[in-house]
Design a binder for these strands. Structure first.
Lengths: 123, 123
DNA sequence: CCGCATCCAACAGGATACTG
DNA sequence: CAGTATCCTGTTGGATGCGG
């Protein structure tokens, strides 16, 4: 009984929520790194480069919570923890990659628009 | 000459940058609203609901700067300003919608994972 | 009506030190 | 090695008031 308009509005809210979810500073980089295969914590940290231990931990926790990443602990000394993309995480990579492809294909248009905007008025 | 690995890393950085660009609190909602047709400033504000004047202004400026949105001023009294999606903005909507569709289709799986994660240990 | 400037609370995220 | 805890900073974004 709800009009079409409300449905669209609601959809946009869900889209917005997911974009904010994967649009934080490190999430996509971690997913991308894991897309190349399972990795240990310190491998991820080294490979991504620039991420702090705190942010890597928290990003991985959030990904694990949403079911995008599996965490496997091997209780040796010292302990070993492996992270891998879940089935759901691998599927998420598809539309994310779609947005990424679009970005790469259109970056020049965006940068042209920015140059036009920035250089158009006041001196 | 760069190995494949570097290329992938670089791509992920670009993807990450765009996700952060459109992953802020209001951008997608504004784009979504304009996807239903051109709108005046106050119509957008009313339709989106909950957005402050400051954030609507700044979100629209950023969208205009990137070439996603056109701004048309009619210098009457009081002034009238219309915003509309550009060609580039309409094209951006496609991969964004792709991610949105995936989200809607898999939200139950994500929520199930969250419930599992949140309720698994120390009550 | 549209937008800017200012102030301010909340949060994201980096650096560092410490635990098992 | 992997993770936690603490501190400290910059940024985000809301509220309010003024101006064309």
């Amino acid at each position: 009984m709800k009009p079409q308009h409300d449905q669209e509005t609601n959809d946009c809210t869900q889209i917005s929520a997911m974009l904010q979810r994967v649009g934080d500073k490190w999430t996509v980089l971690v997913i991308g790194a894991l897309g190349m295969g399972p990795q240990r914590f310190s491998d991820l940290k080294r490979q991504i480069g620039g991420i702090s231990q705190k942010m890597l931990t928290s990003t991985l926790r959030n990904l694990e919570r949403d079911g995008f990443v599996h965490r496997t602990v091997t209780p040796t000394r010292p302990p070993r923890v492996d992270y891998s993309l879940s089935e759901l995480g691998a599927e998420l990579l598809v539309p994310v990659q779609g947005l990424g492809d679009w970005t790469l294909a259109n970056m020049d248009r965006i940068e042209a628009a920015r140059a036009r905007f920035d250089g158009r008025d006041d001196q």
